[in-house]
Amino acid sequence: MRKITAGLFIAADGVVESPEQWHFPYFNDEMGAAVGAQLGAADTVLLGRVTYDGFAAAWPGREDAGGEDAPMAKALGDARKVVVSRSDLAFAWRNSEQLKGDLVEGVTALKQEEGGPIGMSGSISVVRALLAAGLIDELHLFVHPIAVGKGLRLFDGHAEPIRLKLLENTVFSTGVLHTVYGPADN
């Protein structure tokens, strides 16, 4: 069975919304390597529509520009991108398709297919639903040393506890804490 890894930038107060407004001062080579290992190693990327739209607006141009992040941009472009949305979508970025039908059933089927890891970035509502369904194998939280104060939090309004087990923990020189959680053994 394929493994799903989800990565999120998260503030110390739990906010995951709009990381583009507070995340970049903390980005460095350490974080780039960790994100690259989690997301760049995936042959399939599972994204919500809003996250996909942001990626599709940025990464193809970065690949074409050939700059420092061109290898990551190429890896994302070459990966199969499966987009979760209730609306019908049209895609301009190569290797993109829409997940049709029920989210949990569709992702369960995706995990059963042949292939390598399935990576996720952002896509908060999708991550929430897949965590609740027990379909995420590794949750990579990049906890930033900032309290944003307002915004969507990862676990807001979750009805049932989700037990997790710490798999790995690294502190970057910027003070960002990279924690990797997996499902707790019950």
Rank of each mutant, 00 (worst) to 15 (best):
56 A>I: 09
87 S>C: 05
100 K>R: 14
108 T>D: 02
72 M>I: 02
50 V>Q: 07
61 G>S: 12
27 F>N: 04
88 D>L: 13
7 G>K: 12
23 H>N: 11
178 H>F: 10
182 G>W: 04
168 E>Y: 09
110 L>F: 07
159 A>F: 05
119 G>I: 01
32 G>C: 02
52 Y>Q: 03
45 V>I: 15
59 W>V: 10
27 F>G: 02
175 G>D: 01
69 D>L: 13
116 G>L: 05
185 D>Y: 00
113 E>H: 00
49 R>L: 05
39 L>W: 08
98 Q>P: 03
99 L>H: 07
28 N>K: 11
108 T>E: 04
24 F>E: 13
5 T>V: 15
149 G>V: 09
19 P>F: 05
31 M>W: 11
96 S>W: 08
20 E>I: 04
8 L>G: 03
10 I>Y: 00
44 T>E: 09
128 R>P: 00
131 L>Y: 03
5 T>F: 08
167 L>C: 02
89 L>Q: 13
1 M>E: 12
17 E>Q: 15
133 A>S: 06
157 G>H: 13
3 K>H: 15
145 P>C: 10
129 A>P: 02
142 F>E: 10
30 E>G: 05
139 L>N: 04
68 E>Y: 10
164 L>M: 14
7 G>P: 00
84 V>Q: 06
89 L>E: 06
22 W>K: 11
